[in-house]
Design a binder for these strands. Structure first.
Ligand code: FES
Ligand code: FES
Lengths: 139, 139
DNA sequence: TAAAAGAGGACTAAAATAGTCCTATAACAG
DNA sequence: CTGTTATAGGACTATTTTAGTCCTCTTTTA
């Protein structure tokens, strides 16, 4: 099982690419598709979601493309994942309030709850800028 | 996206049920199916994997069923998930070594690596016994 | 030795993921 | 004011994963 699906992977690659090719340049989809290895038509859909989430902005027409709407420092991995894939949860019952019948219900749920929170925190702690700089190297 | 799929959910429910109905009793599949709400034929497959992983032991024939092979204190959520669903990863490249072309490859991977480890640690920290006792209540 | 129980493989159904295609709309250059 | 370049967005399809069923076989013990 992978937490990050293809669409989010593409999104992260695109954002990292944009963060590397510094500043406020506008990046046409074609460039992003080439840079990420994603099919352009598919990447479009992904970027549309990032746009809807306010992570990037897009412009149509000649000279159009994609640019950051938020500072890449402030874009967390969690918000990218949620924008592109939808909610992240350790178990179904943390997304919709189903799957719970009286007996097991809240023992498992309440104890997994801690893990759920920690998981989200983990994803919230990493930003696009983090991903774009190799943190393995000494500062 | 849910980290824990139905099969693992059933497995955890069954294990929690066994841990609650204390000691070394042998639990027939029918009982576990009723207790978990899982279709019995499906639960069988799940239990077989727990068996293969050495988490539980099974006995055939009259009076047969399922019992713990490991102390429920020592059974981590991670090992249940891995036994039933297979490997857990934040991204595909942490399972198989694909999906990586030179450019993005290791920046993203190396930085997500930390999250990957933390995630596994999180799942390793919780045991079946933990799940069976409501940790919200004061000690 | 028959009934009760799990083993295991082949199969099917449903849902999520990944991707395509086609038409429309926006921006700008000439 | 029109053609070209670009994204928007919906409908569609293909592939893969998840979930579940079914049937036959073996083990165990009353
Ligand atoms: S809320 Fe999911 S098993 Fe109880
Ligand atoms: S290893 Fe997965 S994107 Fe580089």
């Amino acid at each position: 099982m992978e937490l990050i699906k293809r669409n989010t992977d593409y999104a992260l690659r695109a954002l990292v690419h944009m963060a590397e090719a510094d500043n406020d340049r506008i990046h046409p989809m074609g460039e992003l598709a080439a840079a990420t290895g994603a099919p352009e038509t598919f990447l479009r859909k992904v970027v549309q979601k990032l746009d809807a989430a306010g992570v990037v902005a897009t412009r149509r027409g000649r000279g159009g493309g994609v640019c950051f709407q938020k500072d890449p420092d402030a874009i967390t991995v969690l918000e990218v994942v949620e924008a592109v894939q939808g909610p992240v949860a350790i178990n179904k019952c943390f997304i919709a309030n189903r799957e719970c019948d009286d007996r097991f219900a809240c023992l498992i749920r309440s104890n997994l709850g801690g893990i759920q929170n920690d998981l989200l925190e983990l994803l919230r702690a990493a930003t696009v800028t983090n991903l774009a700089r190799d943190t393995r190297l000494p500062a």
